[in-house]
Simulated scan of single mutants.
Amino acid sequence: MVRIINDQVALVENVDIFTPIHDDPHIQGEIVACNATNDVFAMGATGIVSLQAFIGYPEDMDEEIVVGVLKGMNDFMMQFGSRVTGGQTIRNPIPVFGGICLGVAHPDDIVYSRGAQPGNAILLTKPLGIQPAMRSYRDLQDEKREALLERFQESELRTMQETAVRVMTHSNRVVALAMKRVGVNAATDVTGFGLIGHADNVASQSGVDVVIEEVPVIRGTLELAKFFGHRLDQGLAAETAGGMLVFLQPDKVEEFQEVMRLHDLPCWTIGRTEKPRATPAARLAEGVKFVETAFP
């Protein structure tokens, strides 16, 4: 949500709540904070005012877990000169963690998911593959472990999981800074609706077709996703605290990627926009290329 306060100040607020994805409380807290702040950064706000925590947990859960999650959230926020400033805690049959993030920007710097134009280049700032990587994290701990290890090496699965954690705990603030410096037409983060789902939202709001020609994925997750039945090869697997889709003029791509390189971060050109064939929509191009990669 964006609220224009005056001609100099706009407030950007986002709420994200989800079930735990990692057993380490501190890491889980970092993921929560990263996920909550990413929507604010996707709208071009680079100043983070605060994060309010939302914690729901059952009566029999050790409160030290809650403390660890809150510490992870607060430690993550400190990199922005901010912190967890309060929140709400409730009893709930299953644990749920989330955050309400408040950011600030100049109204002229706000970036919306509408605004993409035909002929834009499309950038993606993090590889996909969180869903299968973290599914394997769970399956290695229960009765599905044996079946999983009949197909995959445990060391390979652990590498995928570690990469996924790095993706989920790396802030998108540098992307927001690059958008502010370069100037872009539209942007969105990539989370629960997957690459095509979020791209389709931009397409429908902007009145363009989005054509995805190349998809970076965490090394090994494409085959893992097929094993689980996740639709990563269709661009439909869910992500958590994923990267950002950025739509901009082609002559600005090099400058944008240079900003990312200065921070040792990757940035892939994954497609283009064009005039719609019919109803504006996103699609994978015929012969789309999947690129397996690591993440810093």
Rank of each mutant, 00 (worst) to 15 (best):
Q131D: 15
I90F: 09
Y57W: 04
Q257H: 11
V202C: 00
G271L: 04
M168Q: 12
K289W: 02
A133I: 12
T163L: 13
G129F: 08
L248H: 02
V288P: 09
V12F: 03
E214N: 00
G192M: 14
G243N: 03
D209P: 00
H26R: 14
A281E: 12
V69N: 06
A237D: 13
S50P: 09
R3I: 02
T46C: 02
G81S: 09
M43A: 01
V174D: 04
L123Q: 04
A282G: 08
I31S: 10
D109Y: 02
E214D: 00
E213C: 00
L102V: 13
M43I: 00
A53Q: 05
D60G: 00
H26Y: 11
E254L: 14
L248A: 05
N6D: 14
D233M: 11
G44K: 03
T37K: 07
F256A: 07
A238N: 14
A186F: 01
G68Q: 02
A133Y: 12
I212N: 00
V291I: 09
T188C: 06
D142H: 03
G115A: 10
I48N: 05
F247R: 04
D139Y: 12
V175M: 01
I55T: 05
I94D: 11
N35T: 15
E258Q: 15
K226V: 11
R138F: 13
D189T: 05
H170K: 13
E156S: 13
F80C: 06
R151F: 08
A186E: 01
G115P: 08
V67F: 08
F54E: 10
V49F: 10
V215C: 02
M168I: 06
R231N: 11
L157E: 03
L265D: 00
M160N: 09
T19L: 15
L262N: 08
E258D: 14
T159Q: 12
V246Y: 02
M78K: 15
M244A: 05
F41W: 04
F227G: 07
H230M: 12
M134F: 14
V174S: 01
T163W: 07
A133N: 12
V9H: 03
I31M: 13
S171C: 05
A36T: 09
K71Q: 14
D7P: 03
G98E: 02
D23A: 11
G129R: 09
L177A: 05
P276T: 03
P118L: 07
F247N: 01
G115S: 08
G56K: 08
D200K: 04
E258R: 15
V15A: 12
I17D: 05
N35S: 15
R158D: 06
G99P: 09
R231F: 11
F18L: 15
A116W: 04
F152Y: 10
T19M: 14
G99N: 10
E223F: 01
D75H: 15
Q257T: 10
G44H: 03
Q79C: 07
D7V: 02
G192K: 15
I196R: 09
G56D: 06
E143A: 11
G243L: 05
K289A: 04
A237Q: 10
Q161E: 14
V40R: 02
A238Q: 15
S136G: 14
H170I: 03
N120F: 04
P250S: 14
V49R: 08
V49P: 06
E146M: 01
I100R: 15
C267D: 07
E143Y: 06
N74L: 12
G197C: 13
A203D: 01
N38G: 15
G119Y: 11
V259E: 10
